[in-house]
Design a binder for these strands. Structure first.
Length: 296
DNA sequence: GTTGAGCGTT
């Protein structure tokens, strides 16, 4: 984690130059409530400098942002997040209340006007981005647990440890809830799983722990969508081929008498079939379906 | 492409 002291303001670097402030805000908001955001632009060229400062309403959100946004992929870049080592944007106060001398004198007497202007600007940004993309976004994620006490443990190890603390009933509920969500809103669930690989990982591991799935089943899921489609098509093709083959083969193997009999049966009118007892009826219907077009 | 522009004082 970061070696810089936690603060509500975080530095976000490696932002692709074509990203707008609204787009960055959307990403920042996925972690927690954002109070202010500033993407830096080059005054001369007007181009983005590729980094921004985001102020969260609380320290937990900022910590969560540093944890979760640091590996966020956007365009062909990976965001770099850290606590800002500068003073905050709006109120000029540093969060470390004791013995703060890091804010400049100007910051501490920052004019109300400037605060208002910045605040208004930000509100404008908020409403812009809200109207733009409210449809399929997920609400802010819970801040999560600080992992720094277990610095040696990898993220997946932590998930394993935590899951092993749960009893069977709770594990089952976890999987059940996920299943329910997938049925109720598949698109949203897809987004959620995509944006939180930790959750996807935990759910798969939970299913394994519960014996609901095996590693061989999981292997089949690791094939990409295109390949699955291809496999499916191939499978139906082969199945159809076999079906026809079997029908023809069976027909060839039948004696002339049997063929005549079947012909007779499938030529029965619906009325004739309907008066038969149910079990006979279903056999005839099956024969009709099977040989209907093949017998001559 | 890795840490901030600016106003002008209750």
């Amino acid at each position: 984690m970061s070696d810089i002291k936690p603060s509500k303001v975080i530095y976000v670097g490696s932002i692709p130059y074509d990203q707008t402030e609204e787009q960055v805000l959307e990403i920042a908001k996925s972690v927690g409530p954002v109070v202010d955001l500033k993407l830096l632009f080059d005054k001369e060229t007007g181009k983005s400098k590729g980094y921004a400062f985001v102020e969260y309403s609380d320290l937990e959100s900022a910590q969560s942002a540093v944890r979760n946004l640091s590996r966020y992929n956007i365009g062909n870049r990976t965001l770099k997040c850290n606590f800002s080592n500068e003073t905050t944007l709006l109120n000029g106060n540093n969060n470390n209340n004791n013995n703060v001398i890091s804010g400049t004198i100007t910051d501490s007497v920052l004019g109300d006007n400037r605060k208002k202007i910045r605040n208004n600007k930000f509100k404008q940004l908020q409403s812009q981005s809200q109207s733009q993309s409210q449809s399929q976004t997920i609400p802010p994620l819970p801040p999560g647990i600080e992992l720094s006490n277990n610095a040696q443990q990898s993220a997946s190890d932590v998930i394993t440890t935590e899951l092993n603390k749960l009893d069977r009933k709770r594990l089952l509920n976890l999987v059940k809830d996920a299943k329910k969500m997938s049925t109720m809103n598949p698109t949203l669930m897809k987004t959620l799983l995509k944006e939180t690989p930790q959750l996807s990982y935990a759910l798969v591991e939970a299913a394994l722990l519960l014996g609901l799935t095996g590693s061989s089943q999981l292997q089949t899921l690791l094939v990409d969508d295109g390949k699955i489609d291809q496999l499916q098509q191939q499978k139906t093709k082969i199945e159809n081929k076999n079906k026809n083959k079997n029908n023809n083969k069976n027909l060839e193997e039948l004696t002339l008498e049997q063929r005549e009999l079947i012909k007779e049966v499938i030529n029965m009118s619906d009325d004739q079939v309907n008066i038969l007892p149910d079990d006979k009826k279903s056999v005839i219907l099956q024969l009709k379906a099977l040989y209907g077009n093949n017998i001559v």
